[in-house]
C-alpha cells in the first residue's frame, strides 16, 4: 500500500509540474510576447544571452570540430575512408553537434543565470514589486528573455558551425596532411543548405527551451538561498534533458523524407 501511495504521489507531482509549465508557457506567450514591448530589456538580454555566450560556444565548437576530424580520420582509416573527414565534420557539426553542444553550453551559462536572477527577484519580492508598479513581470522579465533566446541561439549556432568546421580544417590540414584546397572544396561540395538550416531550426527551439526553463524555475523558486539554488539546478538539468529529447524528435521530423 505504501508503495502505491508513493507512486501516486510521484505521478501527481509530475502532472502538477507539467500543468504548471503549460500554464506558464501560455502566460509567457500570451502576456510576455504581446505589446507592451520593452525594447531596452530585449536588447540587454540579447547581449547577455547571445553576445556574452560567444567565447564559450566558439571554444566548444572549435575543439569539437578538431576532435571530430581526428576521430573520423583514425576510425575511417580502418576501411580506407579517411577522405570523408571534411564531409563528416561539416555534416556532424551543422546537423547535430553545433546546435546540441551550443544548446547545452548556453543552458549551463544562461539558463542558470536566468533562474538565479529571477529566483532571487522572486524571494526578495522584486517580482511582486514590479506588479505593484503597474509593470507586468511576464512582459518585463519573461518575454524579453525568451525572445532573446529564440533570436540569438540560431546566430550563435551559425557562428559555431563556421568555427567548428574551421577547427576540423585546421586539424585536417595541419596534422592529418589534407590539402587545403581539396578539404574546402569537398566541404562546400557536399554541404547543403538544408543541413545548416535544420541545425538553425533546432537552435531556435533550444533557445526557447533554455530561456523558458530558466524563467519558469526562477519564477517558481521559494524559500531563500536554498530555493534559488534548487531553481538553478532544476533549470539547467531540465533544459539539458529537454534539449536532448527535442533534438531527437526534431531530427526524426526534419530528416524523415
Amino acid at each position: 500500500m505504501n508503495f502505491l501511495a508513493n507512486l501516486g504521489r510521484v505521478v501527481l507531482a509530475l502532472l502538477t509540474e507539467i500543468g504548471s509549465i503549460v500554464l506558464f508557457i501560455k502566460d509567457a506567450l500570451v502576456q510576455g510576447l504581446t505589446p507592451t514591448i520593452y525594447g531596452r530589456q530585449i536588447f540587454d538580454q540579447i547581449l547577455k544571452v547571445g553576445y556574452n555566450s560567444l567565447p564559450v560556444v566558439g571554444l566548444t565548437a572549435f575543439f569539437t570540430g578538431g576532435a571530430l576530424a581526428l576521430q573520423i580520420y583514425l576510425g575511417g582509416s580502418r576501411f580506407n575512408a579517411e577522405s570523408l573527414v571534411s564531409t563528416i565534420v561539416a555534416l556532424g557539426i551543422t546537423r547535430e553537434l553545433g546546435p546540441v553542444l551550443a544548446g547545452l553550453m548556453v543552458a549551463g551559462r544562461v539558463g542558470a543565470s536566468i533562474a538565479a536572477e529571477l529566483g532571487t527577484m522572486r524571494v526578495t519580492e522584486q517580482i511582486d514589486a514590479l506588479t505593484t508598479l503597474a509593470t507586468n513581470p511576464f512582459k518585463y522579465l519573461v518575454g524579453p528573455r525568451i525572445l532573446a533566446g529564440v533570436i540569438t541561439l540560431p546566430i550563435l549556432v551559425g557562428i559555431a558551425d563556421i568555427i567548428g568546421i574551421m577547427g576540423g580544417y585546421i586539424v585536417g590540414t595541419r596534422s592529418l596532411g589534407f590539402n587545403s584546397y581539396a578539404y574546402i572544396k569537398s566541404t562546400s561540395d557536399f554541404l547543403q543548405v538544408d543541413d545548416v538550416v535544420s541545425g538553425l531550426i533546432k537552435a531556435a527551439v533550444f533557445g526557447f527551451i533554455i530561456t523558458l526553463m530558466g524563467c519558469y524555475h526562477g519564477f517558481h523558486s521559494k524559500g531563500g538561498a536554498q530555493g534559488v539554488g534548487r531553481a538553478t539546478t532544476n533549470a539547467v538539468v531540465s533544459s539539458a534533458i529537454l534539449i536532448l529529447a527535442a533534438n531527437f524528435v526534431l531530427t526524426s521530423l526534419l530528416f524523415s523524407e
Partner: peptide
C-alpha cells in the same frame, strides 16, 4: 494595469531592483 497605477507599496525587504 490601470487599477494598479492607483497603488503604491512598501515591501518588507524594500524589494528594490538591484
Amino acid at each position: 494595469d490601470q487599477f494598479l497605477q492607483r497603488f503604491g507599496m512598501l515591501f518588507q525587504g524594500a524589494a528594490l531592483f538591484d
